[in-house]
Design a protein around this nucleic acid. Sequence first.
DNA 1: GATTAGCACTCCATCAGTCCAAGTGCTAAC
DNA 2: GTTAGCACTTGGACTGATGGAGTGCTAATC
Lengths: 389, 389
Amino acid sequence: MELPDRKMRILKAIVRNYLETGEPVGSRTISKLTDLKLSSATIRNEMADLEEMGLITQPHTSAGRIPTDAGYRLYVDDMLSSERKELQDERKQLLDMQDILLEKQGKLENLLQKVAKTLAASTNYASMISSPTTRSSKIKFIQLSQVDPNNVLAVIVIEGNLIRNKVIPVEEELSAENMLKLNMLLNTNLCGLAVEEITLGLIEGIKRNAGIHTAIINDVIDAAAEIVRSEEELKIYTSGANNIFKYPELADHQRASEIISDFEEKQALGSIVQETLASEGQNGIQVYIGEEMPVARMRDCSVVTATYELGEGMKGTIGIIGPKRMDYDKVVGVMQDIMGQLGDLYKPAGKADAGADPGLNADASSPGQPFTIPEIRIPQIKRIEIKEM
Amino acid sequence: MELPDRKMRILKAIVRNYLETGEPVGSRTISKLTDLKLSSATIRNEMADLEEMGLITQPHTSAGRIPTDAGYRLYVDDMLSSERKELQDERKQLLDMQDILLEKQGKLENLLQKVAKTLAASTNYASMISSPTTRSSKIKFIQLSQVDPNNVLAVIVIEGNLIRNKVIPVEEELSAENMLKLNMLLNTNLCGLAVEEITLGLIEGIKRNAGIHTAIINDVIDAAAEIVRSEEELKIYTSGANNIFKYPELADHQRASEIISDFEEKQALGSIVQETLASEGQNGIQVYIGEEMPVARMRDCSVVTATYELGEGMKGTIGIIGPKRMDYDKVVGVMQDIMGQLGDLYKPAGKADAGADPGLNADASSPGQPFTIPEIRIPQIKRIEIKEM
DNA sequence: GATTAGCACTCCATCAGTCCAAGTGCTAAC
DNA sequence: GTTAGCACTTGGACTGATGGAGTGCTAATC
């Protein structure tokens, strides 16, 4: 929608003023606020037009105007297309995440939690961050080992160097030789494949080659699938849910309760993440306003989401959820900042200088595992002998 | 504090009525409610006494009475000492957790989350549950393996069959023989020990025996310590935080915001867990009322906590947080029920019948690992040879 | 034709005043 | 020791009046 310049400026002034005050804004206010020397009467005429166009509305007859969803949308779109250029030049660093990012011992889980906290604290809105999805997660390495007569321990390394293990109950103990064969078979057939790429045909093939122990093959593949699946399971960290109490329009019992509940369950937030990942907006940032919200119960909110990338195609989503009258400019700025800083976090292993190497751990479950170790080779087992102890 | 029977009955009636209605309760109401045929005037006299004793209070001059913290305390103590007997007889099963408990594929994380949800849903209060602490967690088995020239993968199994792994960067590649020695050395020296039992002297001894690679020993032990530490890290799952909106006395912005924040941060809840585990109350259940709350910001709430046991000394805490006027009877009942059901969950591996075997997984990070597999043996490595692939 | 001044009108928030129900404490009678 | 009765207090709900903020419309002005 194209709007004559003057109307646009008035709309912007209305939106901005409303964002600040949360009160309906009247013609006189705008008349004084803008630098286009116009009387309140003229503004009133323009406002009547804007209202007719569905961009602003009156809560009641003798009140000022507030933006409609469409009004916000226009404002945000305009901002996003101009903001981008500004920011790319300056690349201002709004948030000092030094402590967070340098914290060597931290796990990814902690990092995400802290980013969420930082986001919430610096914006005064509620924030969320999803764990990076490893949708393309390929199996790098599988190792089975007999842990006791009834159980086989499967260690599976998937791309991104995430390590998962699972104990598989078996009925018969495997000999070391068979175990070794099995390991080779699995590695040669499955390494480099994403779980989605493992077809039934492939499994059949492996089973044929395995000859014996077809049962265990099934189990292992099930395990692998389950492991990768659980890896893909979206984890969402939130912070500052209580910030919604700062905005009266969200703080009444009904709404607050619903939002808090959605934040606790996290399921609803998941759908926002999905939505964001599915449709990448311009310049990486997406804004859902009111009715556009993927989550029905949050129709009184807006959410600004962005996709961050942690290298190797591991993408996650950060989001700020607040009232429709949120400070979009600020939020978008903070978002871009965080995106940038998270992006910088991943540096190819070789280039990372010692000081800045985040030394992140890839996951809670594999603590201490460096985030950027290079290729993992299949370990070579050499001639080894040991007596029973 | 001993109270004449009639005063006690009146106090109980006041408390019970207030729990139900949330309104100050007047003398007439009590007169009609109790079966001790007394006029409202008499009740008024008794109430004046109770007020003098600090058990009830008036919000304002011409209002009914509400219980003070001390009044609740007396009520709860009385209930706890009588309730116990009742419940031990009947062992009624209030909650049907069949689906939850039988869900074979579930991880402990999911179980806990679901228990929290069940608790919240069935009580209409906010609930929390801490992951079981494995404070006595002993190392069962350590295995190092060279993953690539620069990294060694350490897999550590601790009691309760929790498996953890960590990649340790090393400067020099170890030979298979040395790796094997190291494995044996570590296992013989560390297995069966809790991390607290690993002394500096012990480490020195290991290092001496290791001869070479003293650096890696340090790393491995650090890793082990870190792994066990991260295992002990209290995880807390919550549910139903939004239930507080059902109780007007908690639902005003100030209070709600604080409580929600505490629920999101979970840190404050941690101190409740600590407090509970530290001082085990009578019959396993503890009630903190108002000012007794360990968390200052929740002084308007009460919390009922209980310690559950998941076998092998793994203890965790469940808690219900609600308004001071919570339905203590019901909550205590539900708590005991859950405690029982969680307790039943752990059955010695041999005795568990197939149908009821929960088949729980011990942790998110080791999905699919049966919860009750018996002793883990150190795997025997036999003569194996393999060419470089 | 666009802009502005002026005016009548609308609506909401606020405040004071009134009334009422619920509950109390006290006294006197049983 | 218990109860009936009464004067008193208090908060909540309702009412009506008032004023401020804002609008739409019209007529005058640039």
